[in-house]
Amino acid sequence: MKKLSARRRHPLAALVVLLLALACTGGLYAAFAPASKAQADESAQSLAIDEGKKLYAVGCASCHGTGGQGTSDGPSLVGVGAAAVDFQVGTGRMPAQQPGAQVPKKKVIYSQAEIDQLAAYIASLGAGPAIPSEEKYGPEGADIAKGGELFRTNCAQCHNFTGKGGALTHGKFAPSLEGVDPKHIYEAMQTGPQNMPSFPDTTLSEQNKKDIIAYLDAVNGDDTESPGGLSLGGLGPVSEGLFAWVFGLGALIAVAVWVAARTAKAKKS
């Protein structure tokens, strides 16, 4: 999967998408097409866009308008770029189920191929950030400590020290970053989904983003060490206080009950 996505996010991803779309239609699922960009097939591209447009018309147009121009129920998608589509649809946030303070992440209902077609269509509406390739968010060449500093400056205020998430106004929230695909984190920084501000490359460089992702992987990955024991959700003093009351004082009171209890008598009266 990772390998696949690596190639998919090549700078000329759109072309790959086209080929994939071709492969789908042709029933040739066998291999992912190599990025043979030079022979970009105009008709293949338009085919992907056409496929994407069909998907869009069914799943998205009711809120975002038939041409992606936006309605009162959904913002304009002109110029949001392929990265925004890949993030929103790839994390299951879109299509949205119901209106609310915030659209939460859900089960993804489109295949990656369909997402790519949708992305190709939206990208065709106006220029925007492309889906990043793996070398942009991979661990090579990342400075974890610098990423930590950047994370605390730019991200921790909403997402907590190690990305456990936090509250915003009126029921909105910054989601937990645990288990989120680095690609999606990268795309979120680039595009600023929903109420999250964007951190475009002009102010948060590509290297900065790479550092932040590497830091997150170090402190909130699957293998992250919590030397002291249970991390208690990484939420800080509230969960610690609860734990101290329930398991610290609770255990001690249980012990005290035993210490002070009467010993069983020889004959029960």
């Binding site: 930590g148 909403c158 997402h159 990484g234 509230v238």
Partner: peptide, 20 residues
């Protein structure tokens, strides 16, 4: 159980903060 994992919290800077 961990308590106050300061390494995860980071050093103090008056222009940085975490939610929670």
């Amino acid at each position: 159980a961990t308590i106050n994992p300061i390494w995860a919290i980071g050093p103090y800077r008056p222009d940085q903060v975490s939610t929670g």
